[in-house]
């Protein structure tokens, strides 16, 4: 097993204006209040855990009209290995409530000297929330938040081969709640979230999978951040923790319960800035 070649540099957004102010997924309920102090403490706890595991964290700041910007995973797609310097493809959010985030994130990357490439405006894609690299391909979820066709454009822009996987359970609306790359060979996945074709694709893709039961999947445990051999999890079901440790991972449970009220866990609160996309190693994948 080799460690993931990415996951040591993150962009995070402190919860300065976070709250459940609208409902755009089954977890959000406006009547459930977020405790701002507790949220900030949890967010700082996550940031400190990542730093302690060996990651660096950069910050982007939100404004009041975009409370969900704390979920920086949805900012866009990062291609750290792009020819000609690091590349960022900003998301197009499906819901009007989050569309204001696009230019705020794009500005941050532009200011930081990244190349910012755009998707066609008519296609939705919610960034790393719906696309994670594994096995030389970009696993891209579609239906609830992202359009399948956006994957084709992402592939064109970044050079990454894409595996499109249809998401079928609205509670697991982003691919990063259903799938977590752990190493070059290991990954967690939630088959309940994928249609039967998607399951076949994922079974073929992951050499050593940890398939989650429905209850485990709905606990959001796949929405974890991996730094080297440390897995930072919002919730750790007993069986899952045991298996990860058996594989040699250090498991850290990081309470982000204030953010779970909005349907987001550890992964959602981070955007890896060091994901290399583009063509995978020769011979690892089939045609088109």
């Amino acid at each position: 097993m080799a460690e993931l070649e990415w996951g040591r540099r993150y962009l995070m957004c402190p919860p300065e204006h976070f709250g459940v102010l609208y409902e755009i997924n089954p977890w959000m309920h406006e009547e459930v209040a977020v405790d701002p102090d507790r949220a900030l403490a949890q967010w700082e706890g996550l940031r400190d855990t990542l730093v302690a595991a060996g990651a660096t964290v950069e910050l982007v700041h939100q404004t009041a009209e975009v409370p969900d910007m704390v979920f920086s995973a949805n900012a866009g797609i990062v291609n750290a290995s792009a020819v000609g310097g690091p590349q960022f493809v900003p998301s197009h959010f499906r819901h009007a409530e989050r569309q204001g985030e696009t230019e705020q994130f794009a500005t941050w990357f532009d200011d930081a000297g990244w190349t910012v490439d755009r998707l066609p405006t008519e296609l939705d894609h919610e960034g790393a929330g719906d696309a994670l690299p594994f096995g030389g391909v970009l696993v891209s979820g579609y239906r609830f938040r992202s359009d399948q066709q956006a994957a084709t454009h992402l592939s064109r822009l970044t050079g990454a081969p894409v595996r499109s996987v249809e998401l079928v359970d609205e509670r697991l609306y982003h691919v990063d709640i259903t799938f977590c790359p752990l190493s070059d060979r290991h990954a967690m996945g939630a088959p309940m979230a994928w249609d039967r074709y998607g399951r076949q694709v994922m079974e073929a893709l992951v050499p050593e999978p940890l398939w989650l039961t429905d209850d485990e999947a709905l606990s959001f445990c796949a929405n974890s951040v991996v730094v080297g051999t440390t897995v930072v999890m919002p919730v750790t079901p007993v069986r899952v923790g045991r298996q990860l440790e058996a594989w040699g991972f250090d498991v850290v449970t990081c309470d982000v319960s204030e953010f779970l009220k909005a349907g987001g866990g550890c992964r959602c609160l981070t955007l890896a800035l060091d994901t290399p996309l583009g063509p995978g190693p020769a011979g690892t994948t089939g045609p088109g």
Partner: peptide, 13 residues
């Protein structure tokens, strides 16, 4: 239909 449609089993679907 265009893209990585073979390995994603999109064409089959």
């Amino acid at each position: 239909l265009e893209g990585h449609i073979v390995d994603s089993l999109l064409l089959a679907k």
